[in-house]
């Protein structure tokens, strides 16, 4: 018994370097397969993210307009940037876990990974940017939406490799950051008469409505309508 064990151990030790080398090349192959992307599809994903056509981002944007973190420009920008990091990480976790977990365990595995990510993000925010803690409840949302999607569809798409997933999260996060920064800058300008805490040279009368939670909704509605009107105008000018 003991002899067999030692023999097995020696065999293992002899094979170990070859196995390690094989592991390295397998990891390289996996990296290459999962992060090789075609530029056209990346461009389309970016366009989709920047035009806010991701449902999770719509939910995030509407929820963020209510929370106090979008009432001033620094809060809006910080929320957007931290949310971008969380979106990239959760998407990446979902795509990496897809081939590793069996269909029955996919949702629990994904949820545990997402829970770890949101806890880490919340702790980092508390440690480094204590002014932004009001946006911590937002971190739950992408995980919840993605889990609902997983429950509905069974899995992320097979074509949605980790590379594309990361690009999708990045694009969605950038779109969210831009939209929330514009909104919070407008709210700060109208509600307090300042930009990034600095007062404007000539005093504006503050509109308290813009600083209230409903002001965010109204401003966002006007912004969305304006964007749609301008894009329709541009399309009409291009066509004839």
């Amino acid at each position: 018994m003991k002899k067999e064990k030692t023999e097995g151990w020696t065999a293992f030790r002899q094979q170990a370097p070859a196995r390690l080398r094989a592991l390295g090349s397998a990891a390289l192959r996996w990296l290459k397969a999962s992060f090789s992307m075609e530029p056209g599809r990346v461009g389309r994903l970016f366009l989709r993210g920047l035009t806010l056509r991701n449902p999770a981002v719509l939910l995030l944007l509407l929820t963020a307009t209510v929370l106090p973190c979008s009432a001033a420009l620094p809060g809006g920008l910080g929320t957007g940037l931290s949310m971008t990091a969380v979106l990239v990480c959760t998407n990446l976790a979902g795509a990496v876990l897809r081939p590793l977990s069996s269909p029955a365990l996919r949702i629990p595995c994904y949820l545990i990974a997402a829970a770890a990510i949101l806890t880490a993000a919340g702790l980092v925010l508390q440690a480094c940017f204590p002014g932004l803690t009001s946006c911590v409840p937002l971190f739950l949302l992408p995980a919840a939406v993605n889990a609902a999607m997983l429950a509905r569809r069974g899995a992320f798409s097979r074509r949605f490799t980790p590379g594309y997933a990361a690009v999708d999260g990045l694009a969605a996060g950038i779109g969210f950051t831009i939209a929330l920064s514009v909104l919070s800058a407008l709210r700060e300008l109208l509600g307090k008469g300042t930009i990034w805490g600095a007062a404007l040279p000539d005093e504006l009368p503050p509109v308290l409505l813009a600083a209230a939670p409903c002001g965010g909704f109204l401003l966002l509605a006007c912004l969305a309508a304006m964007v749609r009107w301008v894009s329709e105008r541009l399309e009409r000018r291009e066509k004839p």
Binding site: L62, L208, A212, L218, A221, A224, E232
Partner: peptide, 30 residues
């Protein structure tokens, strides 16, 4: 209006509903 149809009008309606509630708290608008 066409550029408001769909999502923007829903957001504006939600904002107005919240504004009516806010009115009960004696909220000064200006």
């Amino acid at each position: 209006p066409r550029s408001f149809s769909g999502l923007p009008i829903a957001m504006a309606a939600a904002g107005l509903v919240v504004l009516t509630l806010l009115g009960f708290t004696g909220f000064p608008m200006w």
